[in-house]
Amino acid sequence: MSRRRIRLQALRIAIFALAAAFFLVPIGAMFEFSTRGIGVASPRTLSAWAAIPSTPELATAITVSLELALITSLLMLGLLLPTMVWVRLRLPRLNRIVEFICLMPLTVPAIALVVGIKPLYIWISLNFTDSILTLSFAYLILVLPYAYRSLDAGLAAIDLKTLTEAARSLGAGWGTVMLRVVVPNMPAAILNASLLSASLVLGEYTFANLLNYENLQVAIQYVSLVSAGTSIAVAVASLLFAFVLLMILSFAGSRRRRGGRVVPAETPIAPVATVPPSLLAEGS
């Protein structure tokens, strides 16, 4: 038993050590690379990092990607959350269809979807606007599966029907129900869905590249042709940023989770129907 535990612990430590090496060394190596000086024996320098703000393509691309992330998250919440709530409460028959549609992007590779969506974007840019922010519309499709799963888990954890009926019976309109009852009861799931969407958008390359927009990842590639150090520095920074986002989520989510199942403590005095018939029959 305890030998088994010791063996298990040894195995776990070995696995974690190997995993840490495989996953951390490349990130460390990127950092190392980004601080190399020019020439063989030159000292460490942060000049590649310092060059980020002064590389206009990068500065623009960072702003644009952050905007895209924000817009996509808001769009996702504005469209998906009310639909999911509404379907659960009023149109449960559509539940499977909505789920199917939301998970559909998993089976359509982005590179394939972009083939079908390109004519649409050509049309939009000719007739409306060629702003890069229109990418958000396509990104919303990409984040659907992840956002759906996250919100689905959040909605499953609350008694949506009762909460809504209670609020409605107290005179709340649907807007109030959404903003003051549903949203405050699932902050972790909403945060989760938003941050997953944001991190996906920050790392997106396929759509932007093939629809000829310059977002962060595309810019990093362009800049790398000129200054490898600077683009690698941005790459590390964006990666760490995404990691911090998810870390925040992981800890905030677990701390703010409330209304979880309450396990009633065992009462030392049990309810009364405690004297079993067999005992009464035996007498004392």
Partner: peptide, 21 residues
Amino acid sequence: PPTTIYSRPATPFVAEFVGLT
């Protein structure tokens, strides 16, 4: 035996835990 536990609890804990007091 169950009867003893119930009718002649040896300690206050047993008295309070078994049955209602």
